[in-house]
Amino acid sequence: MEKRLITLNVNGIDYELYINPKTLLVEAIRDYIGLTGTKRGCDTVSCGACTVMIDGMSVKSCAVLAVQAEGYKITTVEGLEKDGKLAPVQEAFLDEGAYQCGFCTAGMLMSAQALLNENPNPTEWEIREGIEGNICRCTGYNSIVRAIQAVAKGKYMEVKS
């Protein structure tokens, strides 16, 4: 298949890539752009470790071709912090210990952020459903649920002076 020149907007930056059209988005992000925060944990779109946000919605980046993501705003875990300041979900994950080995964490954070984008005040059940597509083998999820609840309750809201 003939290679194509595409432009991907990742974390606000345009990256020009010359790639095989069958390249997956996760491969483009990790192997071409070099942002390795996003992980892969399976080959069957089951584990959610590769979850990123496309225009603010959570998408498993192993289920999308890089060429399909052209023209959208892609956010990876590296794009959550702003000017060196961590996002509320990141702070909440730290406070609740909502990660252990950390391998699912990037994907989990993106699902959490996408859920909160769509529904700023989710019920506990909505949170659980929101992260159901992400496997975490370490935490048993409850600390993650607590972290998302803490963000929803406004614990990490910026104080505007």
Partner: peptide
């Protein structure tokens, strides 16, 4: 006491480099 995991920032920002990376 309440101590955040000392590897936490690396893990929640994608900076932690695993063998996979």
């Amino acid at each position: 006491t309440h101590v955040r995991n000392i590897d936490g920032v690396a893990k929640v920002t994608g900076r932690a480099v695993y063998t996979f990376d």
